[in-house]
Design a protein around this nucleic acid. Sequence first.
DNA 1: TAAAAAATCGAAAACGTTTTCGCCTGTTAA
DNA 2: TTAACAGGCGAAAACGTTTTCGATTTTTTA
Lengths: 339, 339
Amino acid sequence: MREVTLKQIAENLGISITTVSKALKNYSDVSKSTKERVKEEAKRLNYKPNVFAVNLRTKESKTVGLIIPEVVHHFFSSVVNGIIEQAEKKGYLVIILQSNESYKLEKKQIDLLIRKRVDGVMMSLANKSIDIAHLKELQSHDIPLVMFDKISKMVNCSKIIINDRKAAYEATKHLIDSGCKKIAHFRGALQPQNSIDRFLGYKKALEDHGLPYDSSLVYLCENVDYEDGRRAALQLLKDKKDVDGIFAITDMAATGAIAVFNEKGIKVPDDISIMGFSNWFLSQAITPSLSTVDQPGFEMGKKSFKLLYKEMKAKKKGVPFEPKTVVLDTYVIKRNSTK
Amino acid sequence: MREVTLKQIAENLGISITTVSKALKNYSDVSKSTKERVKEEAKRLNYKPNVFAVNLRTKESKTVGLIIPEVVHHFFSSVVNGIIEQAEKKGYLVIILQSNESYKLEKKQIDLLIRKRVDGVMMSLANKSIDIAHLKELQSHDIPLVMFDKISKMVNCSKIIINDRKAAYEATKHLIDSGCKKIAHFRGALQPQNSIDRFLGYKKALEDHGLPYDSSLVYLCENVDYEDGRRAALQLLKDKKDVDGIFAITDMAATGAIAVFNEKGIKVPDDISIMGFSNWFLSQAITPSLSTVDQPGFEMGKKSFKLLYKEMKAKKKGVPFEPKTVVLDTYVIKRNSTK
DNA sequence: TAAAAAATCGAAAACGTTTTCGCCTGTTAA
DNA sequence: TTAACAGGCGAAAACGTTTTCGATTTTTTA
């Protein structure tokens, strides 16, 4: 079965390839009658333009790249969802790559996307990415870039983020408002900015409300996951810190802590209140359900593509584009792990 | 900044484009010395072949498509993870599309992938897909197809599945072995084969072990999600069925049930045992942790791409390929929701 | 020394599309 | 009657690569 081409149609109709091409794209210098004949024949043969040739000619792939640290992750998969939905609406396809939080892999993947000549790239930085040479390389190829969630201030591109500091401040404030007097923090690694910002928000909230900041109440959760949460909670109990509230950097860490307290017969929230962060699906399913801060992944994905799309369109038209930074709203969701 | 091309290198070196191309691909009719000169110059200029041209010439895109019902889903995101990891190893990129369980969308996306001329497609069928004309269309374009998890027996292609019936049988047997005498089933919709098979496995296990099958103990969970699990559990309590075990079709439904029992002060597993299905991350994080059946998503993804790769290679070489069906192992994971 | 064989290279076609530019025919205006 | 113009069409170049096939030069063999 031969693939149907413009040539095929042209020969069948006894006209030139040029005219066929123009007829299908509604050029004004083709008569109405030939347009009809061409379109009919194209439909009859089930003609589908060869994208390889179109790509080569137009220098566009109608494809964008997406690099995220992890695929199996409620937040990131929500972002993916928002992106592919929006992209499909505009006729773009999305190539997904997973950096596994590795700088080396991330670099390789950027290179892959350059080779593939995608029309644009969206990404959330791996925790271990300090160097941004690979992003500069991307931009030197004139490929529009949008960063979301984990961004780098050193790169001049559009960004979609939340205000981690403010969100953490409000999460902590929620604990304070509900009567907590001694609040611990399960913090993330020292590397990514989000982790730092959430810590700072926690600290600021304490200070603003007359509670002393005590660094011995801050526990490190390197991977911000369930196991880390468990470990930190166990350590906290061992330390006999007599804490009445915890603000954990992620819902996963908070869930680990709740599991430990459930096992030990410590009542949440009566004995201790717990605040998570992200509003993963998980947080409404556990017992007690987890109070948390909503981090709008789907919206973030949607907005990311929309901005990328604008920039790609601007580039195509040759008009200058000024990168934008969008800060999305977050809000505290009160459930049963806080009073 | 002009893109570097073969022509560029050829001119710099005063040789022909042909020779440059062949030198870079280590053709035997290029002398060692020119090969070296060419490679050096290519490196110096940071030459990257134009994939658009390569695609057109070779009729390959080195890209595969993936259609799944949902992205934000522990099982499917695990599959995605397995696929993109494996694909990257072989130099393939993955385009992901989400059917949202809609037949219409699925059909459109298949068409999109045909137009894009991907080298192969992997997919898990939408629940509402009965008709398989779109898959036949795909195959008529000679594009290799691999189906996983939710498959159609009507399509002649490679398949990666688990034995849902056997897995459900063993889940139910686990409840029986742990002493349950009256076991309810939260089943899924009547449509997809998985749902039917799990129900049949449940029924068979009862019969094989001398427990009467009672259709009033089967509750429908149309969307097999958390809310459905809650609803079914509440109905079960209202019905006063005096059940001592539940086999739920998914971990989500099981989690909903556990949440209800936790709220009502019904002890799991002392008053009632609960068995989930899939081994989502969730199941180890809730209290009590959920006994379940492991459904190897990552493995499924990995295997899917591997099979697809084999078929793509066979096609390229022009040798015939016989579709295979691979059944992956599942096993019961005992946690704290069963005795 | 001549003939055969091997080594090295390049011209050119092909992949299928898009777009520029010019040509032809027929109509309108002067 | 001629000039200007519009409508409709197609030739050809271009995008950048791969690969076939023939040409040329060099080396080996008889």
